[in-house]
């Protein structure tokens, strides 16, 4: 009985090791096939996504939010308008840019087409949402009229975010009103 038990245990151990190697082999084969089925551009995008995820995984929240906005501006600069458009919050899209053409027209008029520079002036958290106050300018071009803009970003996961932004400057009387009474009147 004891001899049988030992044989069973050793057999299980050997087969477990064999199963692990088979599992690893299957996974590698699966990854190879997945990569082979992607186009060059898709492979590049996947690599970029992995790069961003590796970049942000040890960052604090504010830094991550700034990276996301940086990525959004990069899409605009690279004229990957559809990618930038897909970063937008759905309700925000419906309110201001219900089709891609409207969005393209807006960003072409608003942002520099190349060498976008962004300065982060403020970052405030409201629950799960961040509100950034940024200044957009163009590197080495003082003729470009820089402007301030508020950006709203919600992070849903690693490199998974939705953006809204202040579409036009505040009119007179408009702005931010924060009321935080701490005692009864």
């Amino acid at each position: 009985m004891k001899k049988e038990l030992i044989i069973i245990v050793i057999s299980i151990l050997i087969l477990t090791i064999v199963a692990s190697f088979i599992g690893i082999g299957i996974r590698k084969e699966k990854q190879k096939r997945e990569m082979a089925s992607l186009t060059e551009e898709q492979r590049k995008e996947k690599d970029e996504e992995n790069t961003i995820i590796n970049k942000i995984k040890d960052m604090n929240e504010v830094d991550r939010i700034q990276v996301y906005f940086g990525e959004f501006l990069k899409f605009i600069e690279q004229q990957k308008y559809e990618k930038a458009y897909n970063c937008l919050n759905e309700n925000f899209k419906n309110n201001y840019f219900n089709n891609l053409e409207k969005f393209i027209e807006y960003v072409k008029n608003k942002y520099p087409q190349t060498n976008i520079a962004v300065t982060y002036n403020e970052a405030n958290r409201r629950g799960d949402i961040f509100i950034l106050k940024v200044k957009i300018s163009q590197v080495l071009n003082t003729e470009f009229e820089s402007f301030e803009q508020r950006i709203v970003i919600r992070e849903n996961g690693a490199n998974d975010y939705k953006i809204s932004f202040q579409v036009e400057e505040d009119a007179e009387g408009e702005g931010i009103e924060v009321d935080t009474p701490t005692s009864l009147e």
Partner: peptide, 15 residues
């Protein structure tokens, strides 16, 4: 503010 992007300003009340 996610729907408006803070266009036109916004109000926050905290208690």
């Amino acid at each position: 503010i996610e729907s408006t992007g803070t266009t036109g300003g916004y109000k926050v009340y905290e208690e």
